[in-house]
Simulated assay, not measured.
Amino acid sequence: MSKPINLRAARKARARDAKRAQGDENAAKFGQTKAEKARNKSEQAAQVARLDSHKRDDR
């Protein structure tokens, strides 16, 4: 027979793990320095400009 588990403790541990995962996701998403944000913004603008320059002009 296996050892009984405390369901309350298991539920709290699962909630704690979920909060930690959400925090790690937020840190990756919003935890950027000002220089990284500026670089990402300029790279994105360059990609948009590149896509726009390849559009066909069908009038």
Rank of each mutant, 00 (worst) to 15 (best):
residue 2 S to E: 12
residue 3 K to H: 13
residue 4 P to V: 01
residue 4 P to T: 00
residue 4 P to W: 00
residue 5 I to R: 02
residue 6 N to Y: 00
residue 6 N to Q: 06
residue 7 L to C: 01
residue 8 R to F: 06
residue 8 R to L: 13
residue 8 R to K: 14
residue 8 R to D: 03
residue 8 R to C: 01
residue 9 A to Y: 04
residue 9 A to S: 10
residue 10 A to L: 09
residue 10 A to M: 07
residue 11 R to G: 10
residue 11 R to T: 01
residue 11 R to Q: 14
residue 13 A to V: 02
residue 13 A to P: 01
residue 13 A to G: 01
residue 13 A to T: 03
residue 14 R to P: 05
residue 14 R to Q: 12
residue 14 R to W: 02
residue 15 A to M: 06
residue 16 R to V: 00
residue 16 R to H: 04
residue 18 A to L: 09
residue 18 A to W: 00
residue 18 A to Y: 02
residue 21 A to K: 13
residue 21 A to N: 08
residue 22 Q to T: 06
residue 23 G to F: 04
residue 23 G to Q: 08
residue 23 G to H: 06
residue 24 D to C: 12
residue 24 D to A: 10
residue 25 E to W: 14
residue 25 E to K: 14
residue 25 E to H: 15
residue 25 E to L: 13
residue 26 N to Q: 14
residue 26 N to K: 06
residue 26 N to W: 09
residue 26 N to P: 03
residue 26 N to V: 07
residue 28 A to W: 02
residue 28 A to T: 04
residue 30 F to H: 04
residue 30 F to Y: 14
residue 31 G to Y: 01
residue 32 Q to F: 05
residue 32 Q to V: 15
residue 34 K to L: 11
residue 35 A to I: 07
residue 35 A to G: 06
residue 35 A to L: 09
residue 35 A to C: 03
residue 37 K to L: 10
residue 37 K to P: 05
residue 37 K to I: 11
residue 38 A to L: 14
residue 38 A to F: 05
residue 40 N to V: 09
residue 40 N to L: 14
residue 40 N to P: 08
residue 41 K to Y: 07
residue 42 S to F: 03
residue 42 S to E: 12
residue 43 E to K: 10
residue 43 E to L: 11
residue 43 E to D: 11
residue 45 A to T: 12
residue 45 A to N: 15
residue 45 A to D: 15
residue 45 A to S: 15
residue 46 A to D: 07
residue 46 A to T: 03
residue 46 A to S: 04
residue 47 Q to V: 03
residue 48 V to D: 13
residue 48 V to S: 07
residue 48 V to E: 13
residue 48 V to I: 15
residue 49 A to F: 02
residue 49 A to H: 08
residue 50 R to W: 07
residue 50 R to S: 13
residue 53 S to W: 04
residue 53 S to I: 06
residue 53 S to L: 08
residue 53 S to V: 08
residue 55 K to P: 10
residue 56 R to L: 15
residue 56 R to K: 15
residue 56 R to Y: 12
residue 57 D to M: 11
residue 57 D to G: 11
residue 57 D to K: 12
residue 57 D to P: 09
residue 58 D to M: 09
residue 58 D to C: 07
residue 59 R to E: 05
